[in-house]
Design a protein around this nucleic acid. Structure first.
Lengths: 226, 226
DNA sequence: ACATATACTGTATATTACACACTATCATGG
DNA sequence: CCATGATAGTGTGTAATATACAGTATATGT
């Protein structure tokens, strides 16, 4: 009886509620390259916004969770899995996509660009790292999404250990500091930075050093697992 | 030419991308009642989850922004406008709604329950304030949404001035402290609380007092506009 | 005037944030 | 081999913030 009610209700649901929209995920994938914050963008091959740059993303598939979609799209675009990926919000302005109503769920991701072999997929002319400081106009409302992602990123890098996603497994404190500086866009005092980072107990000091150039070698650290 | 490309592309878009989903907004509307945190819930009149409690929400309309939808649904359910309303994320598990693929954008809202005249709308048996401490099973994934909203709320009440949304225009410091305690679920030292709140410079001290009971009257404050 | 109920207030201590400058260690080239 | 150059590494004093904690003030009701 109640079982039957459910069935009738569910069947009539499709008829009664017409508005159905496309749903996508878009990812703002950041990296540090040449000591500057870069974001992964796609040059669009097709209209709308043909030849504009856009955040990589795509349509949510039928039985796919949102997070999974974001991870899949990112894996498809960048060939990388198991990276930091976090939802930062939904963008659903009715006119954000000229093709129709498309609601997008935005994600933030960080990677070490050295671990990625950029390859444009079928919808893109190419995939590129562009410096966040000097960006061209972006397709859709991707500028808004990017700014939102950047706000979240700045917040997170100050309060969590996500920065390690931007670095190789073993790194020096100077390298870690440079990533913080690139993200926050400001210099940080070396001594205070080290005191703070070390007090957070995220790091393990290794018994190796990194030697580059004619000067004192730097100790290597790695992120403490779990 | 490029103009034409756009047209063709947009027209073919509908055919090529079939997956279209329902999109809703749901709001976790909190209030303080009897010195305890309560959330506004709807008792569902129809399947699925008939007679279960659920967060108020509804379908995004054709030309409606997400925020606007959340505000409208909330206004429809509660008769209140111009209140604090903030997106807290998208929930899109494929099986979260037995009727089909429904992606919901969740919002957080705060109101003073005295300003609201609760009235069930057509889809609900009734709308009620339920104490967050003792909640029944909720419909869909609304328990997850609620927990997420609660996390955001705790964070915001510590770091912003949103608590004022829970209070009447004029209030005493003790009343403000009680709202913090109810949200955070822990007692707060009176002197430290006052020091902190007053140092934040959000408040204007009024030249009135509030007299209740046989004891010293309390000074009234109000939130400093802009 | 006394009981009682809540408003109101200050100080000492610990923690955290911030400003700031010199020594250590390597490679290189004269 | 030593002087230079380049980056690694380190400590202290001060300010701001967070926390712990207890007694006085002012109203009403009897």
């Amino acid at each position: 009886m109640a079982q039957n009610d459910e069935k009738i209700e569910i069947e009539s649901f499709q008829r009664r509620y017409k508005p159905q929209y496309h749903v996508t995920t878009d990812a703002a994938v950041f990296t540090i390259k040449d000591e500057a914050l870069h974001v992964l963008l796609i040059k669009r091959k097709n209209p709308p916004f043909k030849e504009s740059y856009a955040l990589p993303g795509g349509f949510v598939e039928a039985d796919e969770d949102l997070d999974r979609c974001a991870a899949r799209e990112l894996a498809e675009e960048t060939n990388v899995k198991d990276i930091y990926l976090e939802q930062i919000g939904a963008f659903g302005n009715p006119s954000r996509d000229p093709r129709g109503r498309v609601i997008t769920i935005a994600y933030l991701a960080l990677i070490d660009w050295n671990k990625v072999n950029l390859a444009a997929d079928t919808d893109a002319m190419r995939a590129e790292w562009l410096a966040v400081k000097r960006l061209p106009k972006l397709a859709f409302d991707h500028k808004d999404i990017l700014e939102s992602a950047l706000d979240t990123l700045k917040d997170k890098i100050k309060n969590t250990s996500i920065a390690f996603q931007l670095l190789p497994k073993e790194f020096t404190l100077t390298e870690l500091q440079k990533t913080h500086e690139a993200v926050l866009g400001m210099p940080i005092d070396k001594r205070n930075f080290r005191k703070k980072i070390l007090s957070e107990n995220f790091l393990v000091e290794l018994k190796k050093t990194k030697m580059v150039g004619a000067h004192r070698p730097a100790k290597l650290y790695q992120f403490k697992e779990k």
